[in-house]
Design a protein around this nucleic acid. Structure first.
Length: 690
DNA sequence: GTCGGAATTA
DNA sequence: TAATTCCGAC
């Protein structure tokens, strides 16, 4: 990934100079180039607020000038060099920009741009966070459009056009419209986060509160303990820090608006350059500032998130870190992971490995950090769920790991050095494209797309008929609930797993259909990661690889999620100690704890019990979200179903987990296996009762 | 104001 | 692929 960044830089500049001498001459460019070089040389660029402000000013003016100037389309194509994802050295991997987009382009994406604006105080009058997590209001549509146009060198840009672009995000589930509110949209954090920074550790990043959007509701309830020391840092500190953050800030500032000449490319270049050096810092920081605090995801992330320091975290000073986006979409130099973050790296298993949850080492988050009480969590989740409807993010990934990965039922141990592991495995790179390409082998990283062989559909269908029915009825609503129930289900003896899985899979497929995108992102990742890890590094992944904490949990995607939940075979640990996974535990506990499920069916098979439970939950949850969710789903499903079906099985959560479980546990995993056994035993007992 | 289709662009 | 541009419909 990062190979001779300096060389790269030089090259880039050369190319640019050649291709666009005019542009290159622009002051901004020069300045940027200089800074970039400085970075490479190891000099920290100005990182203070002043710098930032100055940068912002520079950015805007030049960019706007150019854009507005007239040169209608000075746009210089982004340097080719920059584009290559694999190219190392870039601080901003493509995936950072576009989660699902084509591999090639490096241009800033609108949603990314919006986040940038959102995080800058300068633009609060123009666009700002509002309401629920991820919800923002465009206070000055024309201005936003103008800025966007400047950034993209599209002087003709207007809100009508910009909004069209925004609407395209609906289908992608990156955004959705807040009905009834003018110019108000909402980010689908789950997706963004997961997709872009699956493996980034949430905890490590220092929260960059800065302009973090206010947390609307629920935020007050509880706060996540700082995952890492970095969290503790105050915004100001961060800004000052010479390290990565500064660069990030800079980039961001600039990024908002750039001159048309190469705005995009330039930024990217700089970013990349910087990124190589900045690895130490997590992109998340940047992101945090951008996003509204308080996403459940975060909590999740944090749980799994690798703690760079691996140490107990200091208390979080600000709430903001809670921003929904644990990781910033903005390209950040790989933060904690360091090399890992690099685009190329992301793909590689190695980086992930660190995250791989090791049974022996409980994640920090899980332990002491995550001790808030279930009630709060529940609240939080619910709120989130409601606020965000219809994100098709699949919780599966998330679900999986919790179960599998975290074998530690009781985990309050604060210091668990190996927290990182949790994330890693699952998320290698979520590049959808890559996934498709790769099947497997060494490149594991890219392979998100790998699709596990479809489990017997027939079986599934037969078995899942019930589930399907329930899910269908309230697919949207059930998502969150899913988590709850699932874990327990998984507790079942391994032997059963297969059969069940298959059945479950069926359900999943359905769900998947609903959220194809999610699948791509999530499923493949988890799946691949698991495999890769196991294969490649032989790391202990297997079972535990917890996928990056996707926000999904919250998300509700009922369909996908639910299914997955059920699928997740590895839940056993959860049953043992929910503490490990708060979310899961919340929902899960009830069921397992009381063998007598709500239905009152004692002897009902676990599956049924779970399903019932699930259905119930779904209904309950559905009330809030249903309306919107349904709307979208209907559409989405219609479109996507076909595609989904084509895909035999979702790699996503279910299968991935399953596979992971099935895979022979590496030596390291032994603990995990033992835990599983334990869990299994418990389940058995429960079942026995019936 | 919002939505989304269609054609087009890079 | 991710917009950008138009535009008709609601």
């Amino acid at each position: 990934m990062k190979k001779n960044p300096s060389k790269r830089l030089v090259k880039v500049f050369q190319q640019r100079a050649e291709s666009e001498p005019k542009l290159f001459k622009r002051g901004l460019r020069v300045k940027e180039a200089e800074e970039t070089l400085l970075f490479f040389r190891g000099h920290s660029v100005r990182t203070t607020r002043e710098d930032r402000e100055a940068n912002v000013a520079n950015e805007l003016s030049p960019g706007e000038k150019l854009a507005l100037d007239g040169k209608s389309e000075p746009r210089s194509p982004p340097t080719t060099a920059m584009k290559t994802p694999g190219d190392s050295g870039f601080a901003f991997p493509e995936w950072a920009y576009k989660p699902e987009s084509s591999p090639g382009s490096r241009q800033i994406q609108l949603w990314h741009f919006i986040l940038e604006l959102l995080r800058k105080e300068e633009y609060h009058d123009v666009i700002a966070w509002q309401g629920d997590y991820g919800e923002f209001v465009i206070k000055d549509p024309d201005e936003v459009a103008r800025l966007w146009g400047a950034r993209k060198c599209k002087p003709q840009m207007n809100y009508d056009k910009l909004s069209r672009a925004l609407r395209y995000y609906y289908n992608k589930r990156i955004l959705h419209k807040t009905k009834g509110k003018r110019f108000t949209y909402k980010f689908n954090f789950n997706k963004l986060v997961l997709v872009n920074y699956p493996f980034i550790d949430m905890g490590s990043g220092r929260g960059v509160p800065q302009s973090a959007p206010p947390v609307p509701s629920g935020g007050t309830h509880f706060r996540f303990p700082p995952s890492t020391p970095s969290d503790v840092l105050s915004s100001s500190e961060e800004l000052r820090s010479p390290g990565v953050f500064s660069s990030v800030a800079r980039r961001m500032a600039r990024g908002s608006v750039s001159d048309c000449s190469d705005g995009t490319s330039t930024n990217s270049e700089l970013e990349e350059a910087v990124g190589s050096e900045e690895r130490g810092v997590g992109p998340e920081r940047a992101f945090r500032g951008l996003l509204p605090p308080r996403l459940p995801h975060e909590s999740l992330f944090r749980l799994y998130g690798p703690n760079p320091a691996g140490l107990a975290r200091p208390h979080r000073v600000h709430p903001e870190p809670l921003s929904p986006f644990p990781v910033s979409p903005l390209p950040g130099p790989g933060g904690l992971l360091g090399p890992t973050l690099s685009p190329a790296l992301s793909m590689t298993p190695t980086p992930h490995l660190p995250y791989t949850p090791s049974p022996s080492l409980p994640s920090p988050m899980m332990g002491s950090h995550f001790s808030f009480n279930p009630e709060d969590m529940k609240h939080y989740l619910q709120a989130h769920t409601q606020s965000v409807y219809n994100y098709h993010l699949s919780p599966r990934a998330f679900l999986h790991y919790p179960n599998i990965v975290i074998p530690q039922p009781h985990r309050p141990t604060p210091e668990k050095p190996a927290p990182h592991h949790l994330h890693g495995p699952p998320l290698p790179l979520s590049h959808p494209l890559g996934g498709q390409l790769g099947g497997g082998g060494s490149e594991e990283s890219f392979k998100f797309k790998l699709q596990p062989p479809p489990l017997g559909r027939k079986q599934r269908e037969a078995g899942s008929s019930l589930a399907a029915a329930s899910s269908s009825s309230s697919s949207a609503a059930g998502q969150s609930s899913l988590f709850t129930a699932t874990p327990k289900i998984k507790v079942e003896p391994i032997s059963d797993i297969e059969s069940e899985e298959e059945v479950e899979v069926t359900d999943i497929s359905e769900e998947d259909e609903l959220n194809p995108e999610d699948d791509d992102i999530f499923a493949p990742v988890s799946y691949h990661q698991l495999h890769n890890h196991s294969k490649a590094s032989g790391s202990p992944p297997g079972p535990h690889p917890q996928p990056p904490p996707h926000a999904d949990d919250d998300d509700p995607h009922p369909d996908d999620e639910d299914e997955e939940v059920f699928k997740t075979p590895a839940t056993p640990p959860l049953s043992a100690g929910h503490s490990a996974f708060p979310l899961l535990s919340l929902k899960t506990e009830p069921a397992p704890a009381a063998p007598v499920s709500p239905g009152g069916t004692h002897c009902i098979p676990l599956k049924l019990r779970f399903k019932r439970r699930w259905s119930e939950d779904q209904k309950m949850e559905a009330d809030g979200e249903r309306d919107e969710a349904e709307d979208k789903k209907v559409r989405a499903e219609g479109r996507e179903e076909v595609e989904e079906r084509e895909r035999p099985v979702d790699n996503g959560g279910g299968p991935g987990l399953i596979l992971g479980l099935m895979m022979p546990p590496p030596p390291t995993q032994r603990r995990g296996s033992s835990e599983l056994q334990r869990a299994t035993a418990q389940l058995s007992l429960e079942n026995a009762s019936c």
